[in-house]
Design a protein around this nucleic acid. Structure first.
Length: 426
RNA sequence: GGAGGGGUGGCAGAGUGGUUGAAUGCGCUGGUCUCGAAAACCAGUAUACCUGUACGGGUAUCGAGGGUUCGAAUCCCUCCUCCUCCGCCA
C-alpha cells in the first residue's frame, strides 16, 4: 500500500497511477484525502485531551504523597471527566482510521515511468525473443500425449486421489522434475549468490496481506479455515514475509533468497484446451527468487534478477521471449514487471514460465520491513522484488515438445543430464 | 494433548499501582586525555505519529488485544509465542 502522507503530498501522481492501472476509481484519492484529514483532526484532539489527563494524574500523585486529600479528590473528579471525553474521541479515531485503512488498501502501486501504458495483454511490449523456435518436420506430439505415451504423469489417478489438476508424476517424469528443481536451485545458489531457503507451505492471514494476496485475491488460494491458514500460491509469500516487522542494517543489503516450493492455486473457472496437460494445474513446483534491496538499487536489481531467470532458459536451450507488462496488465502490487514466455513447439504458443517484478516499497510498507541507514539517519522502508526461476511444469511441457525427434524419443538438454541420470526419454 | 514457567530498549538484565520511556551493565557515537592507541573520564544513544516556520511541544508503545483505576511494565481477562517436564509422533 501507499503511504497516506505520500498520497497527501502527491495526489495527482496517485490519481494518474490509478487511472493507468484501471483497477479502481480515481475518486478514491479524494476520499482518502478527506478521511486522512478527519483522522488527523481526531488524533490531535485525543492527544490534547490525554495531555491534560496525564498532567492531572501526575498532580494527583503529588497531592497524595503530600497528604492533601481534599485537593486530590477535586483533581480526581476532573480527571474522570477527561476520561469519558477521551473515550468518545477514541471511538472517533478508531472509526476514521478504519475508513482510511480500507481506502488505502485498494490503491494500487504506482507504475514506473518506463512501463508502457495500456489496458490489456495486447498492450504488453515484446521486448526481445531469444533462440530459434524449432521447425519440426514431422507431426509433433503435444506434451500431454508424450507424458501419457511414456508414463511420465498420470492425470486420471491424480483426479481420483485429489482432484482435477493434481497430477501424479511417475518414473522419469518425476525424476525430470526433481532434476529441474535441483538444477534451478544450484544455478541460483552457485551463480546468482542467492541464499537457499526452505519455507513453510502454509501462511497466516498477516503474511498473505503483507505481500498483497489479501484482501483482494483470496480466491486464488486454498484456505484451511479451521487453522486460519492458506496453502501458498507462491513462495513469494513466506519468503518475503521472512523479514516482516524487521529492521535490517543497510550494510546487509541486498539480501537474496531462493526457495523451491510446491505452489497451490485454485485457478477457479479455468477449463479448455489452453489449460490442458501441464499448462495450468492446481499444484505445481517452482523455484522463486526474492530480493530485499536499497530503494535506489531496485531497478538495477530487477534487471539482474531478470537475467538470473533468463540464464536458466538459455542453459536449457529453450527459445523464449521477454515481455514488459503494460500498466493495465501487471497487477495491483507491482511497479514494473517482466514476463518470460517459453515456446511450446507442438502447441505452437508461448507459455509463461516466469514473472519478475519490482514492488518498490509497496509490499515492504505493508510488512514494515525497514533498513537502518549506515549514516544513522532515520529508518527507511526497503524495496522488495521477486521472480520465478522457474515454474517447473511449463518448462517440462516445452522441453518435451521442443526436444522430441521423429522417432518419438525426447532428448534431455546437456546441462540436465547429470541431474536426471538419463539422456533421453523413449 | 496435559502440567508448570517466561516474553522489558541493539544485547544482557532490574523493576508488583504514582514525575518509569523505563535502573544498571555491555555495545555503539561524539568529546577529554595521548605522539598515537588502549584504559579512564564526560556526554549522547528506541520507534511511530500529531503539532509548530524554527528551537521545540505532545501522544502512544515494556509479546498482541481488551478491562480495572484519576493513574498500569506492574492488577484482571483473552490470544500469540518461547522454555521445562509428561504423553503422542515422521
Amino acid at each position: 500500500m501507499l503511504d497516506a502522507q505520500f498520497i497527501r503530498e502527491h495526489p495527482d501522481l496517485v490519481r494518474r497511477a490509478i487511472a493507468q492501472k484501471g483497477t479502481e476509481e480515481v475518486s478514491v484519492v479524494s476520499s482518502i484525502l478527506e478521511a486522512d484529514e478527519r483522522h488527523r483532526a481526531a488524533v490531535t484532539e485525543l492527544q490534547d485531551i490525554r495531555t491534560e489527563a496525564n498532567d492531572e494524574a501526575k498532580k494527583i500523585g503529588r497531592l497524595m504523597r503530600d497528604g492533601e486529600q481534599k485537593a486530590a479528590r477535586v483533581a480526581m473528579a476532573n480527571a474522570g471527566k477527561l476520561k469519558s471525553r477521551a473515550k468518545e474521541v477514541e471511538e472517533l479515531v478508531r472509526e476514521t482510521e478504519a475508513i482510511l485503512n480500507i481506502l488505502l488498501l485498494v490503491v494500487p502501486n504506482i507504475p514506473h515511468t518506463s512501463v508502457p501504458i495500456g489496458k490489456s495483454p495486447e498492450d504488453n511490449r515484446v521486448v526481445k525473443e531469444y533462440g530459434l523456435r524449432p521447425e519440426l518436420d514431422f507431426d509433433p506430439l503435444l506434451h500431454w500425449e508424450i507424458l501419457e505415451k511414456y508414463d511420465l504423469a498420470d492425470f486420471d489417478r491424480g483426479s481420483k486421489v485429489a482432484g482435477a489438476g493434481f497430477p501424479f508424476y511417475t518414473g522419469k517424469g518425476a525424476r525430470l522434475q526433481r532434476a529441474l528443481i535441483n538444477f534451478f536451485l544450484d544455478v541460483a545458489v552457485e551463480e546468482g549468490g542467492y541464499i537457499e531457503i526452505q519455507a513453510p507451505l502454509v501462511v497466516n492471514n498477516a503474511s498473505a496481506t503483507g505481500t498483497g494476496q489479501l484482501p483482494d485475491k483470496e480466491d486464488m488460494m486454498y484456505e484451511i479455515k479451521r487453522d486460519g491458514l492458506f496453502l501458498i500460491p507462491t513462495a513469494e509469500i513466506p519468503v518475503t514475509n521472512f523479514f516482516r516487522d524487521d529492521i535490517i542494517p543497510e550494510s546487509d543489503l541486498p539480501i537474496k533468497f531462493c526457495a523451491y516450493t510446491p505452489c497451490f492455486r485454485r485457478e477457479a473457472g479455468s477449463h479448455g484446451k489452453t489449460v490442458r496437460g501441464l499448462n495450468r494445474i492446481h499444484q505445481f513446483d517452482k523455484v522463486e527468487l526474492v530480493q530485499f534491496v536499497h530503494p535506489e538499487k531496485s531497478y538495477e536489481a530487477l534487471e539482474s534478477l531478470r537475467e538470473d531467470a533468463e540464464s536458466i532458459l538459455k542453459k536449457l536451450e529453450l527459445p523464449y521471449r521477454r515481455l514488459l507488462m503494460c500498466t493495465g496488465d501487471m497487477g495491483f502490487t507491482q511497479s514494473k514487471k517482466y514476463d518470460l514466455e517459453v515456446w511450446s513447439a507442438a502447441q505452437k504458443r508461448w507459455l509463461e514460465v516466469s514473472s519478475i517484478s519490482n514492488f518498490e516499497a509497496f509490499q515492504a510498507r505493508r510488512m514494515q520491513i525497514r533498513y537502518r541507514p549506515s549514516d544513522g539517519s532515520k529508518l527507511q522502508i526497503l524495496h522488495t522484488l521477486n521472480g520465478s526461476a522457474l515454474a517447473i511444469p511449463r518448462v517440462v511441457a516445452a522441453l518435451l515438445e521442443n526436444n522430441q525427434h521423429a522417432d518419438g524419443t525426447v532428448a534431455i538438454p546437456d546441462v540436465l543430464r547429470p541431474y536426471t541420470g538419463f539422456d533421453t526419454i523413449g
